[in-house]
Nucleic acid binder design. Structure first.
Length: 421
DNA sequence: TCTGGGGTCCTAGGACCC
DNA sequence: TCTGGGGTCCTAGGACCC
């Protein structure tokens, strides 16, 4: 059996841990720049605030119903996530951390008639008790079915106590008939539309579909999914692998027209990305840069362009990569447009120790030592304290974050205060 | 006025090889 | 008039996930 543990309304729950006055109140968390709603408490969901809703469109509703609004606090969420995951590892060492708020557990090595229901409840209780984060647990013979089981646990907390075990054929059929096709893991908008058109409305219908159709319209991924839902295992736990791409992209608080502003942004994006690259001991062979105008402003001329610049040698030096990224920017930049978003993506990785050197161009060996030193300094005295001269030339780039909570768990001077009378 | 960010996998088709 | 067969690698774009 597989288990899927998923934190309930994760970001919203993180905000509540250190501020219990928020319990039972509608609460939303906004994306960078306080742009869109990216997490909602149950109360906020019940009010009909959709995922991805632009915050400005719902401002009135927030005020009217006293919805608690927070800017995304990823320092807090990331730390809370690792606390939850560490606890789960204690219950099942075979674990795949699938995202910041969910993990698959493989119970293969447990004895056949092990009481997973009781075990799951114990695990969920412990996580709640130790971190303050509520979780739901689904058990089933395949990963895709564990996703379904989890959904049931989350949807019916009273009946399931947050844990649902799908261990019989009857339970599986009933669950699949209950689950709408568009809510199936791996079925997105496009496939859902096509499936609806041929009368497939729930997950059970999908399992009954002939596999020729599935192969033709949803490719091998769809075929696998169909098997998984029938209880035939096609997906195992995945190993944690180093990233194949690393991206840093941002929308700006306003539009920018000057190339010098964009040069600063692109350099900073490279520096952030390259630090992640070094952390996983990789080098990249190419860098992609893109520029976007504001596509919501249909009244303004639009220009979206990206370019991939090959590097002469594989490197993870912020200095080298910045140089080539800026060359790329120079090529795609066109004056006269209002740029609202830009980004950088590092591509084509290899291991730091397996670099193919070229005959005529060699990296500066000093960079490696320099980067290590910069990384160490930044880790010790705060991120981005040591930077390239082209970054932040004469202005502080501020993201709109008006409702940011404290970094309760990762900054000593921001920890919670306890008052004793 | 205001609308996020970061990933993965798969496939078709072009370019190339012998 | 008529023009083979078998293969690899790369890339762009689509679809999906959180």
């Amino acid at each position: 059996m597989y288990g899927l543990v998923d934190c309930n309304n994760f970001y919203a729950s993180c905000e509540r841990v250190f501020n219990p006055a928020l319990n039972n109140k509608p609460l939303v968390v906004l994306s960078n720049n306080d742009g869109c709603v990216i997490a909602r408490s149950n109360e906020a969901k019940a009010m009909g605030i959709p995922m991805g809703a632009p915050a400005f469109e719902f401002e009135e509703l927030f005020v009217k119903h006293d919805v608690k609004v927070f800017s995304a606090n990823f320092a807090l969420y990331g730390d809370m996530s690792s606390r939850v995951m560490d606890l789960l590892k204690g219950y099942c060492p075979e674990i795949e951390i699938y995202s910041i708020d969910e993990a698959f557990l493989d119970f293969k090595s447990f004895t056949k008639n092990y009481d997973l229901k009781a075990y799951g409840e114990k695990m969920a209780y412990h996580v709640r008790k130790a971190t303050g984060i509520p979780v739901s647990v689904g058990f089933a013979p395949t990963k895709a079915l564990a996703k379904v089981a989890n959904r049931i646990a989350k949807k019916y907390p009273e009946q399931t106590k947050g844990v649902f075990v799908m261990d019989t054929l009857e339970k599986r059929i009933k669950a699949l008939k209950w689950l709408k096709i568009e809510d199936v893991w791996g079925v997105g908008r496009q496939h859902a539309k096509r499936l609806n058109a041929i009368g497939v409305v729930n997950a059970y219908d999908f399992t009954e579909l002939n596999d020729q159709w599935v192969k033709k319209n949803m490719a091998i991924v769809g075929v696998r999914l169909q098997k998984e839902l029938k209880g035939i295992e096609t997906l195992g736990l995945e190993e944690k692998a180093p990233k194949k791409n690393i991206a840093t992209t941002r929308s700006f608080d306003r539009s920018y027209t000057n190339i010098s502003d964009l040069q600063e942004r692109v350099s900073t994006f490279v520096v952030i990305s390259a630090e992640k690259l070094r952390r996983q001991n990789s080098c990249c062979n190419a860098v992609m840069v893109f520029l976007n105008t504001n596509f919501f402003r249909t009244d303004q001329p639009q220009y979206n362009k990206s370019i991939v610049v090959r590097l002469p040698y594989a490197t993870n030096s912020s200095i080298d990569i910045t140089k080539y990224a800026l060359q790329g920017l120079e090529i795609i930049f066109k004056p006269g447009y209002q740029y609202k978003k830009a980004g950088v993506m590092l591509l084509d990785f290899c291991n730091e120790n397996e670099i193919q050197h070229t005959l005529f161009e060699a990296p500066n060996p000093q960079h490696k030592i320099l980067m290590r030193t910069v990384d160490k300094l930044n880790a010790a005295i705060g991120q981005q304290k040591v930077k390239l001269a082209i970054q932040d030339k004469d202005r502080v780039w501020k993201m709109k974050q008006e409702k940011l909570s404290r970094r309760f768990t990762t900054k000593l001077n921001e920890v919670i205060e306890v008052c004793c009378e």
